[in-house]
Amino acid sequence: MTGSGPPAPAHRAALAVLRKDLLLELRTLETVPAMALFAVATLVVFHFGLNRDTLSGQLAAGVLTVTLLFAAMLGTGRLFVAEREQGGFDAFLLAPVDRTAMLFAKVAALLVYLVVLELIAVPAFALLLSPPRLGVALPGVALMLALGDLALAVIGTLVSALAVQTRARDLIGPIVGLPLLIPALIATARGLGPLLDRHGSVSPQGKWVAFLALYDLVGALIAYAVFDFLLED
């Protein structure tokens, strides 16, 4: 008899869900292209709104962070829609797997989306608003963005799972998520600031790296602790 043992190891189920999510995204191209387009459009808006052709320092960091945040919100909002509307939650809950696998899979999927987004949005940012020294400071920028992505992915997944079961999910997701993300956004923007400054340091300040790491850790632990309650019915 199959499937009568204890729950399958979480990573195998998580891989199955992740694989399915990426396959769905490749099939439909619903989320990532929209995120990338939105990011580029936001950069154009910033050019006109600030009336600047080039940006540097903290201003550049702020524009990049906000642009990525907006695009991330789009992707976050769609993360669980197929599960909710096409019975994915039920199918998953009927399987003999650890429920946390869903959390792992969705965080990983959102991380993949964010990295792909940045592979498009950061070059677009460099091209359109030519921040100084982006090339030299790239390792530092990549580190800050990676830590920021993890924060967006963990909190985004948690909030999205919360919002998808509400009547006004398009509204609830952003208004709940944004205040929770503010500390991580402060750290990302402030950490990126000196890196994009002609006279700043090439490596990010330790305090912001440490804080983002702490934020990611706390976020991940809390998400791990409460996620099961969002799947129950």
Binding site: T2, G3, A8, R12, A13, L15, A16, V17, R19, K20, L23, L24, R27, T28, A82, Q86, G87, G88, D90, A91, F92, L94, A95, P96, V97
Partner: peptide, 24 residues
């Protein structure tokens, strides 16, 4: 009432996903 299948995946892919979840 719900088939519990993803509309944008094929039948084979859907069943493959369930097979992985159930270790079949």
């Amino acid at each position: 009432h719900e088939p519990l299948l993803y509309r944008d995946l094929t039948g084979r892919e859907n069943l493959g996903y369930h097979a992985r979840l159930h270790r079949v």
